[in-house]
């Protein structure tokens, strides 16, 4: 019985040394029992440094391999465009894309993305009589050399200057943008190839911007 009493009073595990060492007594515990406590000491600076390094590394990893957070992008591709490049390109689709790229770069500023231009200032391209001609020659000339002075588009009068884009755009880009203009926004014009652009460029190699009257004399086809 006495043995049991002793065991009930010493709740420490009995070691071979026996005795009543109070290695389990901790300071700071209100109830004075032997439960573990924790001191309040600052976080080691090394952990803060590690936090910064790991956050940086984890962020770099995620940004490099996020695939644009697209559900269609699997390893090893990084963007949807990369995946699209694996597939045969539909030439018509690719041409339209190219034309749109050129248009968005140089034409949108004045003629707007919807091809309606600005009333009184820049003529529209959508449904324009100049655009929907049977042949593209006038349009190619216009793009290559620009136009200035008074002109009538769809019965409206305009008097402005369009800079020449021949020095800036290559033949295929001219062909692409003219094709785009002639087929977009309900326009029903034919497509244009770079082979059609090259002779026109050569023919007018040193000329300045057109005037409307001059251009109207150029055959359409």
């Amino acid at each position: 019985m006495s043995k049991k009493k002793r065991q009930s009073e010493t709740n420490k595990p009995a070691t071979s040394g026996g005795g009543d060492t109070d290695f389990t007594r901790q300071q700071g515990n209100r109830s004075g029992s032997s439960e573990p406590t924790a001191d309040c000491n600052p976080i080691h600076m090394g952990l803060i440094v590690l936090l910064s390094i790991l956050l940086f590394a984890a962020d770099m990893q995620l940004m490099a391999h996020r695939g644009g957070f697209e559900a269609r992008v699997y390893e090893p591709y990084n963007t949807v465009e990369e995946v699209e490049l694996q597939w045969p390109i539909d030439p018509a689709v690719e041409a339209r894309r190219k034309g749109k790229r050129v248009y968005d770069t140089v034409c949108t500023a004045c003629h707007q993305g919807n091809g309606l231009g600005t009333a009184g200032q820049f003529p529209p391209l959508a449904g324009s009589d100049w655009v929907n001609e049977e042949g593209p020659n006038r349009l190619i000339n216009l793009v290559l050399h620009g136009i200035q002075g008074p002109m009538t588009v769809n019965g409206q009068a305009y008097n402005n200057a369009m800079p020449p884009w021949g020095p800036v755009l290559k033949d295929d880009e001219v062909a692409a943008v003219v094709t785009y203009i002639r087929s977009e926004w309900g326009n029903k014009g034919s497509a244009v190839t770079p082979e059609q652009v090259a002779p026109i460029r050569q023919a007018g190699a040193d000329r300045g911007p057109w005037s409307a009257d001059e251009l109207l004399k150029v055959p359409v086809k």
Binding site: R72, V73, Y74, V83, L85, Q86, W87
Partner: peptide, 9 residues
């Protein structure tokens, strides 16, 4: 499939 083309284009 679109997301999984054959490796050789």
């Amino acid at each position: 499939l679109f997301s999984a083309p054959f490796p050789i284009a």
